[in-house]
Amino acid sequence: MIIHHPLLGPRDAQEFTVLGDASLIDRPDGMAEGAPDAFDSYLHLRDNPAGTHRELWYHEAGDRSWLVVTRDTRTHEVMQVELARDVALAAGRGR
């Protein structure tokens, strides 16, 4: 697989490690009502779809940036690569 890094261009997938579902960006509020349930599902439960999947990749042997890779889990085709930072900011997390 080739990952088209938004800043560095095409990079071999071998340079990356995979963390998992991009929903891991949406860490629940630990002080909120129902936080134990929210954390259980955040930490342990996954959609695990056969098809389009958004996931967090870390450019460990590269520029150390976190990416959100949109990929088809049936074909391994990479459809979109974004900086995780941009995704998180667009979702209103951090400034």
Partner: peptide, 13 residues
């Protein structure tokens, strides 16, 4: 291989 997959085939690395 380390990434989610339903493809029943892996990659060269």
């Amino acid at each position: 291989d380390g990434y989610n997959s339903y493809a029943q085939r892996g990659n060269l690395p």
